[in-house]
Computed example of a mutant assay.
Amino acid sequence: MISTQTELQRIMNDRKSVRKYKEGVTIPQENLMELVRLATTAPSSSNMQPWRFLIIQDEEAKKELLPIAFNQEQIVQSSATIAVLGDLKMYENAQAIYDANVEQGFMTREIADNMIKNSVNLYAGLPEEALKNVIQFDAGLISMQIMLLAKEMGYDTVPMGGFNKQQFAEHFNLPENEFPVLLISIGEAAAPAYGSSRIPAEQLTRFI
């Protein structure tokens, strides 16, 4: 069976977690904003889009983040680190989100009003731990899109879940309704990433 690799498949195969970056490389803020804008096409629970972003480019801020991120050198070497945050009050945007769906012809006013009511009732009533689980799942979806889009733009990335989340929230003065989920360093690779094997998909999959 002969198959031709698509551009998407190439990007997926080429994306690796890079930990060595060329220092002094600046990514224009408009490029980073375009990256985030494109990534927000990711799906989310009830379309609540609970992700928020803090992009750390300032050299002093990077140095302050370094010990919080357990001294992972990519924090200071890379061009920027995108902190993917979750908003525990994302349901407060339900009205604006579904009003826009009506205005753009995606649904009727009746359906939108029902979705607004159900979304607010559901998410406002969840225990915080359950709500965080929903948000972290959604944050994972957009984080993968960020990394693939970055690769397409010519940049490399590495996701980091290992950092002191409480210290991060305190140091960067996050509002009470926001919490950090993941750090993604981005820049130009100074050394290739290590390759990594994968368990064959046939060993991971069952059909019924």
Rank of each mutant, 00 (worst) to 15 (best):
residue 127 P to A: 05
residue 188 E to A: 00
residue 66 L to T: 04
residue 3 S to V: 09
residue 190 A to T: 00
residue 73 E to V: 01
residue 90 M to I: 01
residue 48 M to I: 12
residue 17 S to I: 01
residue 160 M to Y: 01
residue 208 I to N: 15
residue 198 R to M: 13
residue 132 K to M: 10
residue 61 A to F: 03
residue 48 M to F: 08
residue 128 E to N: 07
residue 184 I to R: 04
residue 64 E to D: 08
residue 133 N to Q: 15
residue 107 M to R: 09
residue 124 A to H: 15
residue 172 F to R: 03
residue 22 K to H: 06
residue 163 F to C: 02
residue 27 I to V: 07
residue 98 Y to K: 09
residue 58 D to C: 09
residue 90 M to H: 10
residue 146 I to A: 05
residue 87 D to W: 01
residue 9 Q to I: 06
residue 66 L to P: 04
residue 45 S to T: 12
residue 198 R to D: 11
residue 151 K to F: 02
residue 30 E to M: 09
residue 40 T to R: 11
residue 43 P to V: 11
residue 170 E to H: 06
residue 54 L to Q: 05
residue 169 A to E: 04
residue 105 G to P: 08
residue 187 G to L: 02
residue 133 N to S: 14
residue 199 I to H: 14
residue 176 E to K: 12
residue 200 P to K: 12
residue 116 I to D: 07
residue 112 A to K: 05
residue 173 N to S: 14
residue 52 R to L: 03
residue 156 D to Q: 10
residue 141 L to M: 15
residue 21 Y to E: 00
residue 140 G to K: 07
residue 39 A to I: 10
residue 177 N to E: 07
residue 23 E to K: 14
residue 193 A to M: 06
residue 120 V to A: 07
residue 83 A to S: 02
residue 144 M to H: 08
residue 93 N to R: 14
residue 34 E to R: 15
residue 23 E to G: 08
residue 40 T to Q: 13
residue 48 M to K: 10
residue 136 Q to V: 09
residue 78 S to W: 00
residue 17 S to V: 00
residue 123 Y to L: 12
residue 115 M to R: 13
residue 48 M to A: 11
residue 170 E to Q: 11
residue 116 I to L: 07
residue 201 A to H: 11
residue 178 E to H: 07
residue 32 L to H: 00
residue 122 L to H: 12
residue 190 A to P: 04
residue 23 E to S: 11
residue 196 S to Q: 14
residue 160 M to N: 04
residue 77 Q to Y: 00
residue 38 L to W: 06
residue 164 N to R: 01
residue 141 L to C: 12
residue 97 I to D: 07
residue 85 L to K: 03
residue 153 M to V: 05
residue 19 R to D: 00
residue 160 M to H: 06
residue 158 V to N: 05
residue 42 A to S: 13
residue 59 E to Q: 15
residue 152 E to D: 14
residue 92 E to F: 01
residue 140 G to A: 09
residue 157 T to A: 03
residue 174 L to E: 02
residue 167 Q to H: 03
residue 47 N to Q: 15
residue 16 K to L: 02
residue 191 A to G: 04
residue 76 V to H: 03
residue 57 Q to G: 02
residue 197 S to Y: 13
residue 141 L to K: 10
residue 95 Q to E: 12
residue 197 S to N: 15
residue 16 K to Y: 02
residue 44 S to G: 14
residue 124 A to V: 12
residue 57 Q to C: 11
residue 119 S to F: 04
residue 208 I to F: 14
residue 43 P to L: 07
residue 62 K to W: 05
residue 193 A to I: 05
residue 26 T to L: 09
residue 123 Y to E: 10
residue 107 M to L: 14
residue 116 I to M: 09
residue 191 A to K: 13
residue 67 P to C: 09
residue 204 L to R: 15
residue 160 M to V: 01
residue 41 T to W: 08
residue 198 R to Q: 15
residue 96 A to H: 08
residue 77 Q to I: 00
residue 60 E to H: 11
residue 203 Q to F: 12
residue 84 V to Y: 03
residue 53 F to Q: 08
residue 69 A to G: 07
residue 54 L to G: 03
residue 179 F to D: 01
residue 116 I to Q: 08
residue 99 D to M: 12
residue 22 K to R: 11
residue 32 L to C: 03
residue 113 D to W: 04
residue 205 T to H: 13
residue 26 T to P: 05
residue 175 P to N: 11
residue 194 Y to H: 15
residue 90 M to A: 09
residue 134 V to P: 06
residue 33 M to N: 14
residue 46 S to I: 06
